[in-house]
């Protein structure tokens, strides 16, 4: 489940990078969500410098870090003329501050690394909101953008299956990650419904006005 989840995550990021690079445009893409995702990786993968889990773990962490910052570069620098800032207006400070406060209050251990890891977990659960908000504001999304969102939504959904499996088999559970992962996946439900009923039938993703 975890491997599928990570692959779904990688596919989402590659779809987004290819969409922007091929169409040389980031229309319909929320730069704010990408900033939040880069922050999530930067604060979660600090342990790259200290602990080694596995080759796979290290490779994936570096890949997520480099691709998320590359996406930001494309949006805010290379193709900034196509960045639709009038529709990307979600106030991300309302996501950042509460996540930070919550991470300081509810965590496994009050150390810098652990609080930052917890912050990244809470922030990731709401990081897609600016993008979903932007899609609702523009009222539609290009089909490639909806495939990106579908893959991204599946990633943490698959992680939930992984957590169930690990709880049953290893009696392992991390409530912070599980609760945040459920919140994160639930946020996509509305989109999943539209994706399955519309995009898979070849229609454009049109949100009811």
């Amino acid at each position: 489940f975890r491997l599928l989840g990570d692959l779904s995550h990688v596919i989402a990021i590659i779809i987004l990078l290819l969409k922007i690079w091929k169409t040389r445009s980031c229309a319909g893409i929320s730069g704010k969500s990408q900033i939040l995702f880069a922050t999530v990786f930067a604060t979660r993968y600090l342990d790259l410098l200290t602990t080694f889990v596995s080759i796979y773990n290290t490779l994936m962490k570096w890949m997520f870090l480099t691709t998320s910052f590359a996406t930001i570069y494309l949006i805010y620098f290379k193709f900034r003329a196509t960045y639709d800032k009038n529709h990307d207006t979600f106030r991300i400070e309302f996501l950042i501050i509460p996540s930070l406060i919550l991470a300081l209050l509810i965590n496994h251990e009050f150390t810098v690394f652990e609080v930052l890891w917890t912050y990244s977990i809470y922030l990731e659960s709401v990081a897609i909101l600016p993008q979903l908000f932007m899609v609702s504001k523009t009222g539609e999304a290009e089909s490639i953008t909806s495939h990106y969102l579908f893959a991204l939504g599946c990633y943490r959904g698959l992680y939930i299956l992984n957590w169930i499996y690990r709880y049953v088999t290893e009696d392992f559970h991390d409530l912070i990650a599980i609760v945040a992962g459920i919140v994160q996946t639930v946020l996509y439900c509305d989109f999943f419904y539209l994706y399955v009923t519309k995009v898979l039938k070849g229609k454009k993703l049109q949100l009811p006005a």
Partner: peptide, 10 residues
């Protein structure tokens, strides 16, 4: 010693 909560997931 307190088991350092190592996060083995991405």
């Amino acid at each position: 010693p307190v088991e350092e909560p190592e996060h083995d997931e991405l």
